[in-house]
Amino acid sequence: MPDLAAPFARACLALDLMRIDPSLGGLRIVARAGPVRDRLAQRLVSADQRPIRLHPSMDDEALFGGLDVAATLAAGAPVMRAGRLAAQGLFLLPMAERIPPALAARLGAALEGGPERMIVAFDESAEDEDGPPAALSDRLGFCVDLSDVGLADAVAPPPGDLAAARLRLRHILTPPDLPQSLAELCAAFGVAGARAPLFALRAARASAAMNDRQITDADIETAAALTLAHRATRSPEPSAPEEEAPEEPRPELESEPRT
């Protein structure tokens, strides 16, 4: 079992899981460009697959294709050019925080239904900036923050046999009480929407397939850490210690005229 506390190992695991089940949608990596991120990007390139690069200002013609005017004029017959989204497989989206909402909506739609597509989004937003639009990030199963990872900690676990795991996936059963516990978990952490628990369920099944077993508690923990943790909007315990400073007498505003 890879160490889930290490963000880099978590990111690698997420990549493996979504290769086993592409309906997990993708992965958002919060990190600036640098050697750590480059090392992760290397892992995206597998023997049979190279990620297709997208960029934040692509227009419809680049995405969906269109008439190739030069070739049409030369050939005297309409020649169409395929867009990037005609392909399937893994897409890489750098500067994901810069994409306009319309593009996010289109990429989000491309992830749903139809052929298998996954998006790895590099979110380079500064601390006070918003990440990519929710129309996209809501449809990516995973999110890992690599911004505080040093190069020494960026140790990638050896990749497992993903092709074999893919074949095993359809034989993994869903434990009858798992939907219940996932729904309760989501409610406790204030995770809205139906996508999150479904991502968690798929991740648990993919994790079990990778380890060649039926779903165990360890798989569920892994899945929850990877798919639910970043969506939490509140802490589950109502008795959690409040981070409020002890009441201090506030200096009254009127009594302190600024000069």
Binding site: T174, P179, L182, A183, A187
Partner: peptide
């Protein structure tokens, strides 16, 4: 409510698998 959410997950899971 939890029950509705559970049913959503169950049906979608059955649809997928």
């Amino acid at each position: 409510d939890i029950d509705t959410r559970v049913e959503v997950i169950r049906r979608r899971d059955a649809y997928d698998r």
